[in-house]
Design a protein around this nucleic acid. Structure first.
Length: 600
RNA sequence: GGGGCGGUAGCUCAAUUGGUUAGAGCCCCGGACUGUCGAUCCGGAGGUUGCGGGUUCGAUUCCCGUCCGCCUCGCCA
């Protein structure tokens, strides 16, 4: 074969007259009988038109060209010539290669779909089954390239900041808390199991104790939970940790990172990131990852609502932590049909709301929905919400938690449905001052909002150490030194200052309901390590896949992974997972109790 | 584990209240064509309607089950 001298994306008029060899795939074939054939050849870098012309080439060569089909893999040698009629739609549209040699490196059989036909893509299922064809598409190649540029910039940036890239094990011990683990049976230790890491959290903390000072790893993590459009069981984190730092020092480095990658890849200058406390985020946006690209801000109208006899409001205000909140949706009164507002209630039912009252502000009156119950508080409502003629209002009345969640989700839905999100905005912010703990009524225990290694804020340490587990309000009020980086309403990174004192860590375990015995059994290595001169430290983990999703403008995490899995955790190309034979299981001291699908 | 939508030719889709031989475009195969670039024109091949069962004279269509895909709630420290 002829080894390529040029790629299919690089030739310009300055190459006219030179003899070149291209290696690639047939992207398109346009034949004009035996005499004249156009073949577009594609490789990773672009597409170049090749012409087989009987006026310039032997009949044998033109015949061979005539047998080419889409996606045949070829090597073609010829002279670059200026096109008589240029194609401005093509990057290489002013030149063509006049074929003088053709080698078919590999014929294709009949294709399930044409990678060149971007406008008629098959279902995702087919694309995943033939991922090698799907990835040939320039669009997918571009995503892979962006992903590569991001990992390259990540390593460059953190190298400049003094971070060392250090690998941590993929075969770990199972952690009791958190997501379900993927397990790997041990052959050498009969009856014992490894777990694949959900994150290298403890290893990176121990690297700080080990004097590594600044650590980076682009690392695969595994969580055996059901996926979502933006979540896979196997995903990649940009994992970082720094010793001898406080929160602001961490945020500064991480903010610099986000600014750098957005500038280099997106060509966007991000200013300094605003910061918002967890409680402000929950109060105003009903979410700990607020999308600040649009308003629809939640307003607490409990006090005003208390002045009516309206049963729904009165009922909510009588609850423990009950409240009434609302937000205005500017100018959509006409679009708030009964069908639309009914759908809000149905939507919010998933989040525990009994119903979503609405009304409209038209001609100086609150009309429709619950408007007729609000006559006596109309003026106060109009003032509190800043209502203007033609606005609609969405209410929720329940406990603070239910109101926040349902209105928080509704404001996102309404913003999308009514097209209220401006294009082209990159609203980054930090959310901080999360609570350390959340009481889970069903389980009758506390749950760490971030993870159990998150430090309390400096001023909270004494309060934490003296906390009485039975005082739920007090324990829930303890503020942690955690922080999340939010981009357009999506959490792209999160981290914290970690606990570096063994006594503080022991107290956190105790509040989380781990006995001293259990804590020792499961985390003795951490407790030991913390006892040997542990430095203050903190860090962040960014979701690499999420970052690439933002950069590529997709909501589908599978788009930004070369070989993703389906919602049921299957790789449709390799057909993983699959059965293994009993001998293999025997070596691992495992016997399957599954009724295996026939014919696999 | 719950809810929703979908599965018809290799691919994208159609098929009237349940009714004749399940159609079209693309792909593929054959032919025509010397400046195309979504080439064009002519012809051809290609089907267990995801799978299993039921109702019916008759099922792509209605019912039940099941598998697969997507979305979502739970879950994801």
């Amino acid at each position: 074969m002829g080894i390529r001298t040029h790629t299919c994306g690089q030739m310009t008029e300055s190459d006219i007259g030179s003899t070149v060899t291209l290696n690639g795939w047939v992207n398109a074939f346009r034949g004009h009988g035996g005499g004249l054939i156009f073949v577009d050849v594609r490789d990773r870098e672009g597409i170049t038109q090749v012409v087989f012309d009987s006026e310039d080439a032997a009949a044998e060569l033109v015949e061979a060209g005539d047998r080419l089909r889409n996606e045949d893999c070829v090597s073609i040698t010829g002279v670059v010539r200026e096109r008589a009629k240029k194609n401005p739609k093509m990057a290489t549209g002013s030149i063509e290669v006049v074929a003088s040699e053709l080698t078919v490196l590999s014929k294709t059989k009949k294709l399930p779909f044409l990678p060149s036909d971007e406008k008629n893509l098959p279902a995702e299922e087919t694309r995943l089954q033939y991922r090698y064809l799907d990835l040939r598409r320039p669009h997918m190649q571009n995503i892979l390239r962006i992903r590569h540029r991001l990992t390259k910039l990540t390593r460059d940036y953190f190298d400049e900041q003094g971070f060392l890239e250090i690998e941590t094990p993929m075969l770990c011990r199972s952690t009791p808390e958190g997501a379900r683990d993927f397990l790997v049976p041990s052959r050498q230790q009969e009856g014992m199991w490894y777990a694949l890491p959900q994150s290298p959290q403890l290893f990176k903390q121990i690297l700080m104790i080990a004097g590594c000072d600044r650590y980076l790893q682009i690392v695969r993590c595994f969580r055996d939970e059901d996926p979502r459009a933006d979540r896979q069981a196997e995903f990649t984190q940009i994992d970082l940790e720094m010793a001898f730092v406080d929160r602001d020092a961490v945020l500064e480095v991480m903010e610099g990172f986000a600014q750098k990658i957005w500038k280099e890849i997106m060509g966007v200058e991000l200013g300094a990131f605003p910061r918002m406390s967890y409680s402000d985020a929950m109060d105003t946006y009903g979410s700990d990852r607020p999308d600040t690209r649009f308003d629809l801000k939640l307003v607490d109208i409990s006090e005003i609502a208390g002045k009516t006899d309206f049963g729904v409001f009165a009922n909510a205000l009588g609850m423990d932590k009950g409240c009434v909140k609302a937000f205005r949706v500017p100018g959509v009164a006409e679009k708030f049909t009964r069908k639309t507002t009914d759908a809000f209630s149905k939507f919010a039912a998933d989040f525990g709301a009994g119903g979503i009252p609405t009304t409209k502000f038209v001609g100086g009156n609150l009309e429709g929905g619950i408007g007729k119950f609000l006559g006596e508080i109309k003026d106060e409502l109009v003032a509190a919400l800043g209502l203007e003629d033609g606005d609609a209002v969405v209410f929720a009345a329940d406990t603070y938690g239910v109101v926040s969640r349902s209105l928080g989700e509704l404001r996102l839905k309404i913003a999308k449905d009514f097209d209220l999100i401006p294009d082209g905005l990159w609203n980054f912010l930090w959310v901080y001052d999360f609570p350390m703990f959340e009481w889970v009524e069903d389980a009758q225990r506390y749950h760490a909002l971030h993870h159990p290694f998150t430090a309390p804020s400096d001023y909270e340490v004494e309060r934490l150490l003296s906390a009485d587990a039975s005082d739920i309000d007090m324990v829930e009020s303890i503020v942690s030194d955690g922080y999340d980086m939010i981009c357009n309403g999506s959490e792209i990174g999160g981290g914290s200052i970690r606990i570096h004192r063994a006594d503080v860590q022991a107290k956190v375990f105790a509040l989380l309901g781990l006995s001293e015995e259990e804590a020792k059994q499961k985390f003795s290595f951490l407790m030991d390590a913390l006892s040997y001169g542990a430095p203050p430290h903190g860090g962040v983990a960014f979701g690499l896949d999420r970052l690439v999703m933002h950069m590529c403008g997709t909501d589908n995490i599978r788009e930004v992974m070369a070989f993703p899995k389906t919602m049921t955790g299957q790789d449709l190309m390799c057909e993983a997972p699959n059965v293994v034979d009993d001998e293999q299981l025997g070596e691992l001291h495992v016997r399957s109790t599954a009724k295996v699908k026939a014919g696999v």
